[in-house]
Structures are given as structure tokens and as C-alpha cells.
């Protein structure tokens, strides 16, 4: 791997961890606060090629598994990966691959492509895996698990829109970002 890609992985990993401690945005009509870390996952998937992005997210999860408090709320430790909410994090691992697969045949520099790829790969896939895992590890049925994760969809879509907007403007200013 090139040195620049490695450096980008390192610093984006630092941003990912840093976003875990950014203050969540609480909004009256949404029952749950919007936390920023999975937006970091979306940014990593958008800014890095598929394999380095997957490795970066894998490193985040590896550090969390070691017990470091690098997930939102200072969570960490192997138990997080056995608990009912682990499915969302496994979804994060698949986000770069899903995003690349969805956008492979579409126009690369269009914001619509990015929005579509990240909605399917970053939001819906993660929520789907989260619900499936939640159903498998608790007494909930898949349908009720799916209904319970719907509460996160509006916040995630807002984060998706913000991520795509940020990256679109970044690539407009720094064309080198497109040479993945």
C-alpha cells in the first residue's frame, strides 16, 4: 500500500475515533440523539478506496475489541461484539464494499451516485444487519427488531446527506481525492 494511503487511513481512523466523542445532536421530535461516529464510517467509505476503507473500519473495531473506549459513549471491549447492538458495527465493516458495489456502474463524480450508494450501503444495510443481529440475540422477532431500528433511519439519512455534501465539496476543491 502506498504511504499516502496509509497516512490517510491513520488520520481518518483518528477522525473516526474523535467523532465518537463529539457531542451528540439531540432533536426534539427524534427519540434518539444523532451520534456522529457512523457518519465517520460513511466519510471513510467515501474518501478512501474500498480495501483501505475496510481496513480502517476494521482497525476501529479491533481497537474497540481490545477494550479501548473508542466507540460512541466510550464503549469498548469484546462484549460489545457479542451484545445485541453488535450487528450495526458488522454493518460498518461491509459499508465500503457495499458502497463500491452499488456505485461501480454509475457516474462516479455525481452526488446522486454518492447519495444512492451511501443510502443503500451505509444506512439501510447497516440497519438491516443491526435488526437481524438484534433479533438473533434477543427474544424479539425480526419484524419487531426492524421496526425498532426504524427510529434511527431519519438521523442516519441526515448524516448521509451531510457526508455526501461534505465529500462533494471536498472533491470539488481537491480533485486529487478522486484519484483513489
Amino acid at each position: 500500500m502506498q504511504t499516502k494511503t496509509l497516512t490517510r487511513m491513520g488520520l481518518l481512523l483518528a477522525v473516526l475515533i474523535g467523532l465518537a466523542f463529539a457531542p451528540p445532536i439531540t432533536i426534539g421530535f427524534l427519540g434518539v440523539p444523532i451520534v456522529l461516529q457512523n457518519m465517520g464510517v460513511m466519510l471513510v467509505a467515501l474518501l478512501l478506496p474500498t480495501r483501505p476503507a475496510t481496513i480502517t473500519i476494521g482497525l476501529l473495531l479491533a481497537l474497540a475489541a481490545l477494550g479501548l473506549p473508542v466507540l460512541t459513549g466510550g464503549r469498548g471491549g469484546i462484549a460489545v461484539f457479542m451484545g445485541p447492538t453488535a450487528g450495526f458495527m458488522y454493518g460498518w465493516l461491509l459499508t465500503p464494499l457495499a458502497y463500491a458495489g452499488i456505485t461501480h456502474y454509475l457516474k462516479q463524480d455525481s452526488w446522486v451516485t454518492k447519495a444512492l450508494g451511501m443510502t443503500l450501503g451505509g444506512v439501510l444495510l447497516t440497519e438491516l444487519l443491526g435488526a437481524a443481529w438484534l433479533a438473533a440475540t434477543t427474544n424479539m422477532t425480526f419484524v419487531s427488531a426492524l421496526l425498532s431500528v426504524l427510529i434511527y433511519i431519519p438521523g442516519d439519512l441526515l448524516k448521509m446527506a451531510l457526508s455526501v455534501l461534505v465529500v462533494q465539496q471536498l472533491t470539488a476543491v481537491m480533485p486529487a481525492l478522486n484519484s483513489k
Binding site: T7, M9, G10, L13, A14, I17, G18, F21, L59
Partner: peptide, 18 residues
């Protein structure tokens, strides 16, 4: 060593990102 160096970079720059 490339991957472990990435981790070192990340840990070193967390305070800077904050």
C-alpha cells in the same frame, strides 16, 4: 508494520483531532 504504523498515527493524532 505498515498497518501497525497506521494505528500509531491514529493514536498519536486523536488529541489533535479533538
Amino acid at each position: 508494520y505498515r498497518i501497525s504504523y497506521s494505528v500509531a498515527l491514529a493514536l498519536r493524532y486523536i488529541p489533535d483531532v479533538q
